[in-house]
Nucleic acid binder design. Structure first.
Lengths: 140, 140
DNA sequence: ATATTTGCAAAGCCTTTGCAGGGGA
DNA sequence: TCCCCTGCAAAGGCTTTGCAAATAT
């Protein structure tokens, strides 16, 4: 299931709770990053900002994304198919599915998939990153 | 199980079979990349070359690695924990285990692990990348 | 008033590329 | 001879950083 979208008016509150100064730029960027965007890269965020805001510098985009990751409002991923860092408002543990046709990433909640893993005993597994690759059949 | 190490004297033959001109530099680099090295980055290869060979340029290192990947003698990976491309002489499908203490990567053959996956029908999975993270207990 | 944050520009890191010279078939 | 490869240097793409001006508490 999709994560419930955060409402814009809640953003300031969320930032404060997370211990982040709710500056105008951060609130604005969060509107995109925490609500609208889907696996944006820093570039995507910067492009959105240029189209929708008066002016936000690249440094602020990176600083903000970094800060949001730091306080746990955002997760950052680096995937094999791209050299860019992608950000994800889904901070729960989850997997990803890469649509090989569109290049789009889809979050796969851990409940959505049955993954059972058994490794030799010497490996103590603390976590696993999984990215599925394939195509998505859009028919219901 | 570990991939059988390719013997140095076979390298020229292997390159020719793969349709790659067996130049001195390539043979030398392959000695490291296909035999000794373990998940080297381009930097690692360059460092080894500087220590062990007369002179190999950075361009040749990258060109050679690229060519080897192109002909299927090497696989390249990009992992979440590093921004560098790592190369792997194991060209079979396999997973990886990242030792969180040493930072070392270990190949996990698909037979070594029991992974069963079920995704909703709409997802047609063509492949999956898996990297386990944790620690390796060295006792037998 | 003091600590943060922003914006600009420059630097950093890894990888790719253009091109002239050199080596292999 | 002709084509591919090598090495040098420069460029490219993404991210980080230094620093002064602006902003928040």
């Amino acid at each position: 299931m999709k994560t419930i979208c955060i409402q814009p008016h809640q953003i300031e509150e969320i930032l404060v709770k997370a211990g982040v100064q709710p500056t105008l730029q951060r609130i604005a960027l969060c509107r995109y990053v925490l609500c609208e965007a889907n696996h944006p890269t820093a570039d995507d965020v910067k492009a959105w900002a240029q189209d929708n805001l008066d002016k936000v510098s690249q440094a602020t985009v990176y600083n903000t994304l970094g800060k949001l990751v730091e306080v746990g409002l955002l997760k950052s991923f680096r995937f094999p198919h791209s050299e860019k860092i992608v950000y994800d408002q889904n901070v729960q543990e989850h997997y990803h599915f890469l649509d090989e046709i569109t290049g789009k990433l889809v979050d796969i909640d851990t409940e959505e998939v049955d993954v059972s893993v058994t490794l030799p005993r010497k490996y103590k597994v603390n976590g696993m990153d999984v990215i599925f690759k394939g195509i998505i059949k859009e028919r219901a």
